[in-house]
Nucleic acid binder design. Structure first.
Lengths: 189, 189
DNA sequence: AGGGCCATGTAATAGGTTACATGATTGC
DNA sequence: GCAATCATGTAACCTATTACATGGCCCT
């Protein structure tokens, strides 16, 4: 169960409430792990019961009170143990590839809009990652201070996201060319 | 629910039993979609009940009888409908990235073995994909016959897998360089 | 004799999604 | 007045994983 571990890492980077975690899972750490707020609340409660997390009630004015979670000793130990265990190299789960193969039995031309839409999303994500890289790692402000190990590691993960988006965009272009070529060779089916 | 759709595509490409599907999901279509035999049997049963699939009992000698599934009209209609619906561009779920960020709070050097192990797996997969490409698409035998739309689409999906593995290997090299640099700057922690 | 492949399944559990529910504050 | 943001949660359902179970054939 790696959601627990992703939460531990995120809370070590910075303590926060369930709500804040849910927002981080839409950005930053969410680039390579997704979770909804319902799931996060459920897991936080379980982890708290298991003693992995410490909670602090934070009264706020003008806003609902929040529970700020931070990692307790057993949580850190659980993370450390997981870090030293080997994990399975993950396999993709790529719906769009299923669609592309399925299009052979239907209408390949119908793929075009869908693939272009996906390309746009990945293109936006790439721009977003690059902006984050400039802000946090390669820009003048970030370059002023020497990066610590944590920042170096966050940066290499971000570079992975950037490489993934670039590769995906290039592949979607390949798909578009292929589909157009199919359409051209048989104008109507 | 895309497992149903992946099964429909696979059975349209070639009818087969639950066992055979499970094997295909370890190879070929499994490169971008995974499923275990338990799950496949359950979904096949549900799809059969829903009338999406036709079954044929095939007696065999020296082996247990098998049930050969093929796609029935309603199954084809369900697939067609899905193909015309937009789907969400998927987000990654990358355990290793969580580990890398987590290593900042533990021992970054412990990543090295793990990353090298993953690199090996991806390198093997790449070799496997390239061999498949040569056999089915770019080799002398395959080049002799003009490819149809189905083959072109299968090929472009395979090219996506190849691009993914290449990108991943390059990124894992980047991770290794980064971790080694961290270790060099502070020999013991 | 033992291991691996073919072939099918059940049961229990864990993980994840969708819908529903509440309620105050801030900004347009 | 309406929508968005902050903040927390429950309930129902669907999906996926892990463990267990059976049994014959083929090869070494």
């Amino acid at each position: 169960m790696a959601l627990e571990h992703a939460i531990l890492v995120s809370l070590l980077e910075k303590p926060g409430s369930g709500y804040e975690l849910a927002r981080r899972f839409e950005r930053s750490i969410g680039y390579f792990w997704t979770a909804t707020h319902q799931q996060i609340y459920r897991v936080l409660k379980r982890m708290e019961t298991a003693g992995m997390l410490a909670v602090r009630e934070v009264p706020q004015q003008g806003r609902p009170d929040k529970k700020e979670y931070s990692v307790a000793g057993p949580g850190r130990a659980a993370l450390s143990q997981w870090l030293h265990e080997p994990i399975e190299p993950e396999s993709l789960r790529h719906d769009l590839a299923v669609k592309i193969r399925g299009a052979a039995f239907d209408d390949p031309a119908a793929l075009i809009d869908e693939v272009e839409r996906h390309r746009q999303v990945h293109s936006d994500r790439l721009a977003h990652y690059l902006a984050g890289e400039l802000r946090d790692f390669t820009g003048p402000e970030a370059a002023a201070a020497p990066p610590d190990a944590g920042q170096e590691l966050q940066h290499v993960v971000l570079r992975g996201g950037i490489a993934y988006e670039r590769m995906t965009i290039a592949w979607l272009d390949d798909v578009l060319v292929t589909v157009h070529r199919l359409g051209a060779s048989r104008p109507r089916t």
